[in-house]
Simulated assay, not measured.
Amino acid sequence: MDAQCACGSLKVDLPDDITPAVVACHCTACQRRTGSPFGVGAYYLLAALTITGNATSWTRETDSGGAFTTYFCPTCGSTVYWTTGNHPEAAGIAVGAIADPHFPGPVRSVWEETRHEWVEIPTALHHFPRGRS
């Protein structure tokens, strides 16, 4: 299984033997990053991933003062993955870049205080008004 950008030049090979933590985030930064009312990421240890192709990165400061770095294709602009200063050993993979309709749904829903009122994440077992503590 892999994740890739729209043009296919940036790819992440995902391990088949690891079940990732899948999180839906409703923060305004994820809304703007995705152009959608929320972002969904599958989290893996970086050591378990193989990333090929060139990526352009952009880092923003989080509300807690940490760093959130998004990696996207310099050709087509698709966001494929990201890293955070709080968990430098892990990467979030954009579930849309995986493009598998059978991929597991989110188990957590965060930043629900900025969730669009018509959005519901029925697979989420845990809901947080802001980020997870």
Rank of each mutant, 00 (worst) to 15 (best):
T79H: 09
R60T: 14
A21Y: 02
V23A: 12
Y71L: 11
G53F: 10
Y44P: 00
G65W: 10
H26M: 09
S64C: 12
C27D: 00
F38Y: 11
S78L: 04
G66K: 02
A29D: 10
T34F: 08
S78I: 01
N86C: 14
T84W: 03
L49W: 00
C76H: 13
P15V: 02
N86I: 15
T59Y: 01
E61R: 13
S64D: 13
Q31H: 08
T28N: 11
A48W: 01
P37S: 13
C30K: 05
D17C: 09
V23S: 11
T62P: 04
Y43R: 10
V40D: 00
T79E: 00
R32H: 07
A42I: 10
T70W: 03
A67G: 07
T52A: 10
F38E: 00
P37W: 06
G39A: 11
A55G: 01
A47K: 11
R32N: 02
S78G: 08
S36I: 08
Y43I: 14
T69P: 00
I18F: 07
A55C: 06
G35N: 03
H87W: 14
P74F: 12
Y81V: 04
T56I: 04
Y71R: 10
S64A: 15
T59Q: 06
V22R: 05
G66V: 05
C27H: 04
P37V: 12
N54V: 09
T83H: 14
A29L: 06
T52W: 07
I18D: 00
G85H: 02
Y43G: 09
T75Y: 02
F38M: 11
R32L: 06
N54Y: 05
G77C: 03
T75R: 11
D17M: 06
G41F: 09
C76K: 14
A24Q: 09
R60L: 11
R60C: 09
E61G: 07
L14V: 09
G77A: 03
D16H: 06
T56C: 07
V23T: 14
R60M: 08
G41H: 10
S57D: 15
T34E: 04
H26F: 11
Y81P: 00
T19R: 03
C76I: 10
G39I: 01
W58V: 10
Y71A: 03
C30L: 05
C76P: 00
T84Q: 08
T62Q: 10
A47Q: 12
C30T: 03
G53C: 07
A55S: 15
A55T: 05
N86A: 15
H26A: 05
A42Y: 06
T70V: 15
P74S: 09
P15W: 01
E61F: 02
E61W: 01
A67C: 04
